[in-house]
């Protein structure tokens, strides 16, 4: 129990880090919506996800603490499954208190609490690629990311979502090959 508590504090600080990313990404979406022809459904569905997360703060927190128990620097690989289940049980007990605290603290905290639930998130369905063939979807997301980086500079937060999308959609082998081609200047796409 004491160990689990220690884990929690550690991971909260780690989650601050995550929160930064998430906020930036959220900010980035707004200007992007105007530029890119994102369908409004995407935004709507995101809200739905957020709502869901709010509905089940306990579950979200449980997942969070489970992750956190895994992410502690102390010998993660060797951690037995028993330990994990134990931690999970502990966290479910402690979860409601934790979440209520957070909601009291600030709105930002709340957003940060949702990040673990958002974890089950991937590139959304894209109306430009409604068919079974998603080859272009992957390629387009890759190109979009690199055009975004070219326009806004390396590490621009609003480009991160494109990176997430293309990593979700493209096989690692393809991305490797394209990266090589970009370095050699032989990439066939419009960069």
């Amino acid at each position: 129990m004491a160990e689990a508590q220690g884990d929690k504090t550690l991971t909260l600080s780690e989650q601050y880090h995550l929160k930064g990313n998430e906020e930036k990404a959220n900010v980035g979406i707004k200007p992007e919506e105007v530029k890119e022809v994102q369908n409004p459904e995407n935004a709507a569905s995101k809200e739905v996800v957020a709502d869901k997360a709010e509905e089940t703060p306990a579950a979200a927190a449980a997942v969070a603490s489970e992750e956190s128990s895994g992410s502690t620097p102390t010998a993660v690989g060797e951690e037995s499954t028993e330990d994990n289940t134990g931690a999970a049980e502990n966290s479910t007990e402690a979860a409601p208190e934790e979440s209520s605290e957070n909601t009291e603290n600030s709105g930002e905290q709340e957003v940060e609490e949702e990040t673990p639930e958002v974890k089950l998130e991937t590139a959304p369905a894209d109306f430009r690629f409604p068919t079974t063939n998603q080859t272009r979807h992957c390629f387009t997301r890759y190109v979009e990311y690199h055009r975004c980086v070219a326009a806004k500079g390396e590490g621009a937060p609003e480009c991160e979502k494109f990176a997430k999308y293309y990593r979700s959609l493209c096989p690692g082998e393809w991305v490797e090959r394209w990266n090589e081609q970009r370095e050699n200047g032989t990439f066939p796409g419009p960069l």
Binding site: A59, A62, V63, E66, E67, G70, S71, V76, A88
Partner: peptide, 11 residues
């Protein structure tokens, strides 16, 4: 189950 998936992946 969903929650087990989360822990599996993070592990």
């Amino acid at each position: 189950p969903r929650k087990d998936y989360g822990s599996r992946v993070s592990n």
